[in-house]
Write a protein that binds this DNA or RNA. Sequence first.
DNA 1: TAAATTTGACTGATCGATCAGTCAAGAGAA
DNA 2: TTCTCTTGACTGATCGATCAGTCAAATTTA
Lengths: 227, 227
Amino acid sequence: MKAVTAKNSSRDAILRAAERVFGELGYHGASMREIAMEAKVAQALLHYHFKTKEALYVAIFEQRSQLINDRRQARLQELRKKGAFDLRAVVEVFALPAPDMFDDPRQNYESYQQMAAAVSVGHDTRSVALVKSCYDGISKQFIDAFMAAVPELTKAAATWCYLYALGIRRQAELQTDRAARLSGGKNPSPPAWLVAFIEAGILSIAQTSAGRKKTAKGRAPTKRKPQ
Amino acid sequence: MKAVTAKNSSRDAILRAAERVFGELGYHGASMREIAMEAKVAQALLHYHFKTKEALYVAIFEQRSQLINDRRQARLQELRKKGAFDLRAVVEVFALPAPDMFDDPRQNYESYQQMAAAVSVGHDTRSVALVKSCYDGISKQFIDAFMAAVPELTKAAATWCYLYALGIRRQAELQTDRAARLSGGKNPSPPAWLVAFIEAGILSIAQTSAGRKKTAKGRAPTKRKPQ
DNA sequence: TAAATTTGACTGATCGATCAGTCAAGAGAA
DNA sequence: TTCTCTTGACTGATCGATCAGTCAAATTTA
């Protein structure tokens, strides 16, 4: 009656239910009982498939982050193949989701965004470890992409620009309700201002003395990076 | 033996201890028992002073946010008195803490930043209510300040610029460890690049067609802000 | 059949909250 | 002064509820 679909059907049902409950209540606020109820399975089944609450939490991140990061990485690679990086294009890959990024493990993407936001601001060991294992890779690629697109950028400057951009993207994803409240009115879909904002911010840092590479004495850096 | 200092000494001790524990573990992760241990008082005393866990959580925000918002508001007022707003100055008030903002309820400011970050990304009722009551006021003032400094900005554009800036500031406050890891090296105090980044981002939005007020037919507002 | 999956019943630990009661300090009356 | 009475601050013990996790038995799948 339950295994009508695939053989992993209830495992996936647990993952999606956990995503919703974790997203809404956070790691500690969510309970295995409630996740089981949301997934309509017995609580013991969660432990059969995922052993512990923490492992279930991690499993969600591994599934989601790999899917999303692979997608962004592919688009970055595509840009790289076309020739030199254009900063605007790189920022667009970073900031704007590919239309197919939401549909693979259906729905729930907003819940995952909640989880990702909580993890990325958390300083507890679990959050730090998850960020390191799931996001440091793609982060370094974008930092390199920023440096390739704007050769004047120091690595430290590019790193901070990326972190700033992350903060902006998270706000764009999560704060549409608050934006409507603060601007006092109707709530259209969040405008794509973040691309222009990020691009201008990065370019301004590249012109700052502290964010610019020193090549010859005070001279503007001439060379692009080799490849 | 305990009331050697002020009459509110243990109440304040509880507040500071709660700040540390809530900051490290989050609302659900923190327990009244651990807060009581950290404050070195009986657990029942927490309920005596604050009634419930939630009320204790709220009390921390009321104390801290009022202090910080008042300080920023005063600096904004000071700018207003001096004449027309300069965008750079407004952004500096927003992004850079006054040196005395950390010292009043001593230490623990990093813990409070953790709490504030968790609340500002949370979509649960408690977080939303807290943001609304503690932060909407100062937010509207900064949005107005942005519009005064850059008259071309639509209210919607100014609102999103403010939210982006919030995301950037949070990253600058909380991600120094990750920045050091990603840039692969030593970790100086987080550079003040965020001011230039935010300023450039806002100015770029003001030049976007969607973020700019329409004055005459399609005509571009030509000048930068006076001053 | 054997293996994989799923369940209900259960455990010990810990949660937030409540309780009656202790203790020192202050107020008013003598 | 001394004796009562009240009050605010504080505590140890304990409540029922809920937590993550376990296990043997039942069910489904191959």
